[in-house]
Design a protein around this nucleic acid. Structure first.
Length: 509
DNA sequence: CAGGGATGCAA
DNA sequence: TATTGCATCCCTG
């Protein structure tokens, strides 16, 4: 099949048994080159076979809901038939390409087995308390309207606060506030980091920040979610298995991987995600998985030791960098080390660290130098990975997932540096994706083996959300943690923390 | 109405 | 001028 998941989901909706799918040409083409998101059968057949399978309408292709809906008066059997034949013709060629790129095992042991699991997760969906969420929306709308009035008064005239064009005139032309930075197009920026720097200059600025925050929550996380609730009162987002070049999943309609978590208002929205009757939610997340992978890949003895002792990794790195005992680490020392730890995962440079810590570039460089002096294997690993990727053209994860980076040899310095950052990040983010995908496959099998009713319903990059019958919660919690922690044996332990509760807010931690 | 830019949410 | 995504709003053509 090409893109089997919507078909499997349609079978679940029709209460029909699922066939075993052996080969998904969309996934296979993505393994060969993860830069092409959702390779279409049209393009593949033309490129690999020189065949024109013809444009597909939504009758032959999966519809938005994943069901096959035929107009019975005008069934086109020819196009689906040509497409089916094209998939069959593609199998050998793409398999050879996967083989040549070392991707066959990843394909057959991770990506293919994940398809029916994701189909089931989409089919099950997650419960939404629409009445509660509606009341959150009413509250937010009221506060937003009040703020809008106050902003208009302070500006001296009404304008559309959501229009950056109009807001720019108000702030920089009419109120005379200083321009802090410009957008890539060269016009004055009004983004949150700019507003934060202007907050002591005019009362309007704090109102604007709050307006943006609350209106974002209202429009994106209240209105949008309510529109997508199914007839069963649940949200059935779609997982995109080929959406991220690093190997992560992505999600859409809705994207439940970016539900607010930090502010109080964000947590109110998380309260609307609920378990069904007689069930509860279990949220299990890998603790610092990317830094643990960095410790493993770099074999840095200091970092491995910190994880082996299971101490707060940001405090532990701060202690080492500053040459003090862990208990003497100040808040500021920990904050700096935490920023560098995160920056390492993204291919940080001094400029970026300086921005985030609001310090000079020179001072940021000094912090980075001190860090690398204490973690020399990390420094060597970072340098080596870029060099290796430049040589062979790709990076590799612990399960052999490759990301090709032609940018590394670009004539354009900006593109080349982007390639270097991607080379630094891809093995780490990609290995984390490998690990949680394997955990999903193992956990699904373990739940079935023990005849448990607990089901995975969401994956949010380093965490799994399960809906669990109340009477099973202890057994499923223990099984989930053991499975997630046991999927890989790295040079540092994998650690899982968890929370349980009737809503996503209660189960969070 | 499609598409791009700006913005902001998550890990 | 730190990685990966997706959604919203505004604005233009």
């Amino acid at each position: 099949m090409h893109d089997a998941k919507p078909f499997l989901r349609a079978l679940l909706e029709a209460d029909l048994p699922l066939p075993l799918v052996h080969f998904d040409s969309m996934l296979a083409a993505w393994i060969v080159n993860p830069a092409q998101r959702a390779p279409s059968l049209d393009d593949l057949a033309y490129r690999e076979l020189g065949i024109e399978v013809g444009a597909v309408d939504d009758a032959g292709e999966s519809t938005a809901q994943g069901a096959f809906e035929f107009d019975e008066t005008a069934i086109d059997l020819e196009t689906p038939a040509r497409r089916a034949l094209a998939v069959a013709e593609l199998v050998d060629g793409i398999t050879e390409q996967m083989e040549a790129r070392g991707g066959n095992e990843l394909f057959s042991t991770i990506e293919m087995p994940l398809i029916p699991i994701l189909a089931r997760m989409e089919y099950d969906g997650v419960g939404l308390d629409s009445a509660f969420l509606t009341s959150v929306g009413v509250d937010l709308a009221g506060r937003v309207a009040t703020l809008e009035g106050e902003i208009h008064s302070l500006a001296g005239r009404p304008f559309n606060v959501n229009s950056t064009l109009q807001l720019r005139s108000v702030l920089f032309d009419e109120l005379g506030l200083p321009v802090i930075k410009k957008t890539p197009k060269g016009v004055p920026s009004t983004d949150a980091s700019v507003l934060e720097k202007l907050s002591d200059q005019h009362d309007i600025v704090a109102k604007l920040l709050l307006f943006r925050e609350l209106d974002k929550l209202r429009s994106t996380y209240v209105e949008a979610l309510l529109k997508l609730v199914g007839h069963d009162g649940r949200l059935h987002g779609r997982f995109n298995q080929t959406g991220a070049a690093t190997g992560r999943l992505s999600m859409e309609r809705p994207n439940l991987q970016n539900i607010p978590a930090r502010s109080d208002e964000g947590r109110a929205i998380r309260k609307a995600f609920v378990a069904g009757d007689g069930a509860t939610l279990l949220v299990a997340d890998y603790s610092q998985i990317e830094l643990r992978i960095l410790a493993h890949l770099s074999q840095d003895s200091g970092m491995i030791e910190a994880f082996a002792n299971d101490i707060d990794i940001h405090a532990a790195t701060a202690a080492r960098v500053n040459g003090v005992p862990t208990e003497s680490v100040s808040d500021d020392m920990r904050r700096t080390s935490k920023m560098i730890n995160f920056g390492l995962l993204y291919g940080m440079e001094a400029y970026g660290l300086a921005q985030r810590l609001d310090i000079d570039r020179e001072e940021a460089q000094h912090h980075i130098d001190e860090y690398f002096a204490q973690f020399p294997e990390v420094k060597a690993y970072m340098a080596g990975i870029v060099e290796e990727a430049r040589g062979c053209g790709f990076t590799t994860t612990i399960l052999g997932r490759r990301r090709y980076l032609p940018e590394l040899n670009s004539q354009n310095a900006r593109d080349r540096q982007m390639g270097e950052r991607m080379a630094l990040n891809a093995p780490i983010q990609g290995s984390a994706a490998d690990i949680i995908k394997k955990a999903m496959i193992d956990l699904d099998a373990n739940l079935v083996e023990r005849s448990l009713g607990g089901q995975m319903i969401l994956q949010i990059h380093d965490e799994l959300v399960l809906e669990v019958p109340l009477e099973e919660i202890d057994e499923v919690t223990a099984l989930t943690i053991a499975t997630m922690e046991g999927v890989a044996s790295l040079s540092v332990p994998l650690k899982v923390s968890y929370g349980v509760g009737p809503t996503l807010a209660d189960a969070g931690h």
